[in-house]
Design a protein around this nucleic acid. Structure first.
Lengths: 229, 229
DNA sequence: TAGCTTATTGTAAAAATTACAGAAATATTG
DNA sequence: CAATATTTCTGTAATTTTTACAATAAGCTA
């Protein structure tokens, strides 16, 4: 960007790291850019913020346009504003992440994307812009959050088994957990409803299904409760 | 703000919550605004981000102009972008906080401030803009940070007593700590250097002085160490 | 019904946290 | 200089939390 007597163009955008969990793996939804800059490269979904749109709304809109989903967990993480981060001018971007139940929708790539695809977090390559850095910041925030808030459930279907829940934590935290200790701890919180149902169509002993008791959690929070894994 | 055919003005700013610790109390540095909007009201120090200035630089500049201090702990917290948060147009602001050793400087209020003053965190009144919300977000982040990183030392002089350190934690966390357990825990980290010096000019048994061993801390972090109070 | 696969459960050892009080060091005062 | 006032400094036992670890149960398939 030039000197002070150049006309100064500035804008703000949001980028949204959309996380999903499938097949024991943490995934992130990337788009293949259909327009310059970085045409043909994978990148995070994002858009400029409209003149009278709040930031959270803009991030939710990006998600809605791509997935059709509303009322999804969304958290602002960090704002990236290096002077030269965008090749076309000064664009600072506010990074968000979302947690979606991956089975709940069909992908509907929008105008700025020629293609959208889930990528395993461990297999994300070189992204356009500073998006690797943004992805990293969001992944780190998620790791932290998952230990101090019951957000992991946002990535699972309503009904889930304890093994699925454990695998989710293992995928997000990138560590292995002891099965018995994990179950002991999570059940001792009394935040899971035992649905008295079991898995169907599995070729082995079917596991019990549980759901997260959000109402109870919020009651406890009001009394000062702190979720901690 | 008006409809889409109005000319749209947008800008970004940084606001910096400058924390200090003095007299057993957590303080925040506020300015009395000398110009509209909110002229005469207390507010956070902040400024527009220059066209070719990175965000962290802008926040550091605000601090430098007000205090003359460089190389200060600075952390980005959150970006506030409600459409109507600024009465003169769309201004989104990136909030930072800084931790300064309060005795180290003289206040030199700059152009946008007619007056700067330390306020006890518990006695901050109604601020201009959305600055109460910003202050809150930064205070909450500090509370969290102080438990997981050794940032508390940024608020203390190089040499400090264990009692001072404890009072700092109590002020930030807004809880009381047990003296013996606090000392046991902090000393067991082996991150404090016992300086073999004691306080002078106190009307009672003088306490030993310690300093934080940053070099050792960074060595440990490289090996995977995690500070936790 | 035998074999396969995954689910489910408990206990003992180790580590961390909590609660709690009295003696020691220095300055001040009479 | 002795008595007093103030704050520093230190240890232990009880409790709670965390960790390590493996055998049996349940349902499916062949």
């Amino acid at each position: 960007m030039g000197e002070s007597n150049n006309f100064f163009k500035s804008a703000f955008s949001v980028d949204n790291v959309i996380f999903g969990f499938d097949d024991g793996d943490l995934k992130v939804l990337l788009i293949k850019r259909g327009t310059a800059p970085f045409k043909g490269k994978w990148a995070l979904p994002g858009d400029l913020v409209y003149p009278n749109e709040d930031l959270d709304n803009a991030a939710a809109r990006v998600l809605l346009e791509l997935t059709g989903l509303k009322n999804v967990y969304l958290e602002q993480v960090h704002t990236f504003g290096a002077v030269d981060r965008h090749p076309l001018g000064r664009v600072i971007t506010i990074a968000y992440y979302s947690l979606v139940k991956i089975a709940n929708f069909e992908l509907t790539p929008s105008s700025w994307a020629s293609k959208a695809k889930w990528h395993s977090i461990s297999e994300v390559g070189d992204l356009g812009f500073d998006h690797n850095e943004i992805l990293n910041a969001c992944f780190n925030r998620l790791k932290q959050r998952v230990k101090s808030r019951p957000v992991g459930f946002e990535l699972l279907p309503k009904k889930f088994t304890l093994t699925e829940l454990q695998h989710l934590y293992e995928a997000v935290l990138e560590i292995e957990l002891d099965k018995r200790n994990f179950r002991k701890k999570i059940l001792s919180m009394n935040l899971l409803k035992d649905l008295n149902e079991t898995q169907e169509n599995v070729a082995h002993r079917p596991a019990r299904l549980y759901s997260f008791d959000k109402v109870k959690y919020e009651r406890l929070v009001a009394e000062g409760y702190n979720f901690a894994l």
